[in-house]
């Protein structure tokens, strides 16, 4: 049997579609405010926010685990809300404020550098990581969780009796549910739940 990588009907279409090739690297200029700094970039329209951060700005803290919005390793905050940066085309985020793991630590800790965000401290304190590859996404996601709970966003496990719009209590079940978009193959989940609880107790949403 003689065959090709693509179904025959699609071949002609694909070939036709590929004319002219110049359309394929169309670029636009845009501004991304990353960790408080505005960056003017001219990017291929196919470039995701994740690849813009990693390959164009050298901010490799956001990780690429699946590139399909399935693992959460690329989680960043866009205008204060968590998002899978691998699912966002950069050209469509012109003007947005993006916070990555590199932008969470602030000020000086008086010893070895910047003062860590309470969630970063809590992850270290609890040993809520092993290989570390999902960790930046977990921490950014947890920042989003604390804000969402404070803003009264319900989750799948929120009791239906909870007052609408009122701040949500982050029980361990709530934390587990809300953090389930961030996979960790090393299995650090129990410690992650504890770490998020510690940051909740420390008033992490306001940090």
């Amino acid at each position: 049997m003689e065959s090709t990588n693509q179904p025959a009907a699609a071949d002609a279409q694909a070939t036709a579609h590929r004319q002219p090739p110049l359309a394929y690297d169309a670029r636009s200029e845009l501004v991304l405010h990353v960790n408080g700094t505005p960056y003017t970039l001219t990017l291929d329209h196919r470039t995701t926010v994740l690849d813009a951060l990693r390959e164009h700005l050298g901010l490799t803290g956001a990780k690429k685990g699946c590139d399909h919005g399935q693992c959460g390793a690329c989680t960043v905050l866009v205008d204060g809300r968590r998002a899978n940066s691998c699912l966002l085309l950069a050209v469509a985020q012109d003007g947005r404020r993006i916070t990555t793991i590199e932008g969470l630590a602030h000020g000086n800790d008086g010893a070895d550098g910047e003062r860590l965000h309470p969630l970063q401290e809590a992850f270290l304190e609890r040993d809520a990581l092993q290989c570390g590859y999902c960790t930046p996404g977990q921490i950014c996601s947890a920042v989003g969780v604390l804000t969402e709970a404070a803003d009264g966003f319900p989750s799948h496990v929120t009791p239906y009796t909870a007052a609408s719009g009122a701040p949500m209590e982050l029980t361990p079940d709530e934390i587990r549910e809300r953090m389930s978009g961030n996979l960790c193959r090393c299995g650090a989940y129990p410690r992650i739940v504890e770490a998020v609880g510690d940051a909740r107790d420390a008033g992490g949403a306001e940090s």
Partner: peptide
């Protein structure tokens, strides 16, 4: 003892194989 590279990992400073350009 707390893991040595913990701080690099929670700040995003730890570089993995595809993070060298």
């Amino acid at each position: 003892v707390a893991r040595r590279e913990g701080r690099e990992k929670v700040t995003g400073a730890a570089r993995y194989a595809a993070e060298h350009t």
